[in-house]
Nucleic acid binder design. Structure first.
Lengths: 199, 199
DNA sequence: TAGATTGTTAATCGATTAACAATC
DNA sequence: TAGATTGTTAATCGATTAACAATC
């Protein structure tokens, strides 16, 4: 679904712009039938014979993806990768009117880092995650960029703080309770994946 | 497959250590049947009644995943993310005896960056990708961490240089010829994905 | 031998695609 | 009206799981 929103965001949507499942599918790299099925899951947004009204569909997708409001994220583990993701998100949020992800808190366990800042955002101690998240007005999504050894422990803190969605970049398989959504991305697993097709 | 190798690497493999599809599946988060099917694709590595010999299976997996030799990677686009991935890989390669991915070249288009170094590795101009890759002894995998606007152009250079495997971190859908393996990872798409499950 | 676990085949499940009546 | 395209149902495809003979 997110890919459709991105495509619509990248398009010049005059008021009269309609887009067919055919065109949307081509741009997204999926079949027209797939597009129609995906969208039909959430309602009847299309008009037979013309397609989907661009502006309307975009608004609907934003609603469905919760991208019609600010989504508050925190980043835990401010090493190279954490720093990169932090800067990337701060910049996009400041620059792009439509980018809904706002970094609201940073955490690390290293006393030397605590108190230092990235842009205007201070790094806080990870063991105070729950209180800090509360104090800064709530966190929707946590991004974990700590070493593999610390990841499960950190994730448990995240769950305890009541955060319901997590993106994990530590190269390890993590356990979460049913009600928490976890997605893991793993650079070295991806590298193996493509390397496997060599020769 | 890569996940099985990681699990075996994390295990203390005495010579008498055998592991069953049951145990391997539990650790990987897949069914025993799935494990057996995956492994059987590449040969008969198991012994009925006992399971898979740890050391042997690990060696086989390394061979299959091409992880029994150094895999040479280059990183194109040395912004925050490129720098983070570079440092991460340089460090792992230097530290972990078994980590097969060696960063051998860095590229950027910014004249201010060209000639500067990360650790001992100099940043080279991206338009000389082909020659530089050749000169430094060949590149197996390219990692693209340039802005979305430049990604397709850079990928075309990568393909022209004869590189057969690419990891893309730019938030855009790229086109490659059939014979090139492309895998894309996308932080903001992942964020939308988990955010979608909020509430 | 009895118990365990493989590799593989058959059965199940889910996801993708094709097709088409409805309709703009 | 004729042409286009939707939403949905039926058909296809592929992937996962169950089951079991073979065998260590």
């Amino acid at each position: 679904m997110a890919i459709y929103l991105r495509i619509l965001s990248g398009l010049d949507l005059e008021n009269s712009r309609y887009i067919s499942s055919q065109e949307l599918g081509e741009r997204a790299g999926v079949s027209p039938a797939q597009v129609r099925k995906d969208l039909a899951m959430f309602g009847q947004f299309g008009k037979p014979g013309v397609g989907y009204h661009g502006k309307t569909l975009k608004a609907e997708l934003k609603r469905i993806l919760k991208a019609d409001r600010v989504i508050r994220i925190c980043i835990i583990g401010i090493g190279e990768l954490g720093r990169a993701i932090t800067r990337y998100n701060l910049k996009r949020f400041a620059t792009e009117k439509e980018y809904p992800f706002k970094v609201v808190a940073l955490f690390d366990s290293d006393p030397a880092k605590i108190g230092t800042k990235i842009e205007a955002l201070e790094i806080r101690p990870v063991n105070e995650l729950s209180q800090t998240a509360q104090a800064c007005g709530g966190v929707d999504v946590a991004i974990i960029t700590v070493p593999a050894e610390a990841a499960q422990e950190v994730l448990d803190l995240v769950v305890a703080a009541g955060i319901k969605a997590v993106l994990n970049y530590a190269p390890i398989k993590l356990k979460v309770p049913e009600h928490v959504k976890l997605h893991s991305a793993d650079v070295s697993l991806d590298l193996h994946q493509v390397a496997y097709h060599l020769e």
